[in-house]
Write a protein that binds this DNA or RNA. Structure first.
Lengths: 204, 204
DNA sequence: TTAACGTTTGTCCAAACGGTCAAAAATTGC
DNA sequence: GCAATTTTTGACCGTTTGGACAAACGTTAA
């Protein structure tokens, strides 16, 4: 009986696939799934369309690969929230991490937002499963902190939603934020200002 | 010299255009501009594609009409914030109105979110003009309230952003919110819960 | 050198798309 | 009732799109 030899991927394959994913992230984040074309992605990756399709069998396959990777990184900050830590410190760190992600990975944030806006057709099971479990678990921690009188009383679920909404807002609605803040206050310092503000809002 | 007789629109024209806009709102909100097709909109409006194009000269024209109308309704709640009112009451009312809009007009919210996500290609001037002016004006009011010691100290601009982000979250990320809350807590009461939570967050 | 394998490209296709147009059908005003 | 006008439709067109495919190209190892 032959071992079903896993088709070992070469160095070139890994590099090209990485190149394609990077280009696709750019294009998908700006135009959404339907709005993006394989040609656009191929051009951004510096290769021809058939060549791209040699590495990914379809546009959908690229998108799914991107989203799968994204979800890992997306849940990480919340996972790090530690029941044994100091509540204020833990929450402050969580907010910081989320704002840093909005600043450093806005394309990922927009990709995710796009998927949810369309009704999360590809990740609904994950939201109802893994994500819900994670949030429920952390909500229970927050509830415990409140019970111990170490945190102001609030609804833990809506508390988490509010942190998501406000932090991701600076990535997803960046155009609007910059437009409203104007050229003077819309510089790169806006993320630091946002972080400071949000700490005050959620912990003040 | 002839009066440039405005082509008076008939009753049928007004009704059909309304029907189309309603259908288009549904389709655009779900699939975005590029993702939506004229055929889809026509079918949702119960008419043939050429017939739809008799009332709107292009897909773009439908979208622009929709967005123009939307912006009016969108700015209204913030406009109502009254410098002469009680700060806490004014802000509470503003949050209430925004949550009600997320509950009653989620499609409009998603349409707007979609446009911003794509970089606001059609409404950027409006954001940099009318919206910025409005926000600056209201920010000044909030600043004055703080100066008078009638409101906790915060950055007015980010304060407004936070209200936008949290309230619209319940429309734009509705799928995720429902997935995380689950069948029991995800019922229609979630908007009321959200409103209560947000009042506490922003005014507590 | 050459056979085997991995990579790249030009060409092609069928479906979907936004939009046009002339003609038919329905409505309206007299 | 009838002519003028508005509304609706089927057929059609050019373009874009996702994807297939075979042939060409490059690389490696015997």
């Amino acid at each position: 009986m032959d071992k079903p030899t896993k088709p070992r991927s070469t160095r070139i394959q890994r590099e090209k696939r990485e190149l394609i994913l990077e280009a696709a992230l750019e294009v998908f984040a700006q135009h959404g799934f339907r709005g993006a074309t394989i040609d656009q992605i191929a051009e951004a990756a510096g290769m021809s369309k058939p060549n791209l399709l040699y590495y990914f069998k379809s546009k959908e396959a690229i998108f799914v690969t991107l989203i799968d990777r994204l979800m890992e990184a997306w849940l990480a900050p919340l996972r790090e929230m530690d029941a044994d830590g100091d509540p204020v410190t833990e929450i402050r760190s969580y907010i910081r991490r989320k704002i840093e992600m909005a600043r450093d990975f806005p394309r990922e944030s927009r990709l995710f937002a796009n998927e949810i806006l369309q009704g999360a057709p590809r990740i609904l099971p994950l939201l109802e499963g893994e994500l819900k479990e994670l949030v429920d678990e952390k909500a229970e921690i927050i509830r415990e902190w409140i019970r111990q009188g170490r945190l102001k009383k609030t609804d833990p679920h809506h508390f988490i939603f509010a942190i998501w909404a406000t932090t991701q807002h600076y990535a997803d609605f960046d155009v609007q934020v910059r437009a409203v803040l104007g050229p003077d206050k819309g510089g790169e310092g806006r993320f630091e200002d946002a972080a400071t503000f949000l700490e005050g809002l959620f912990l003040g």
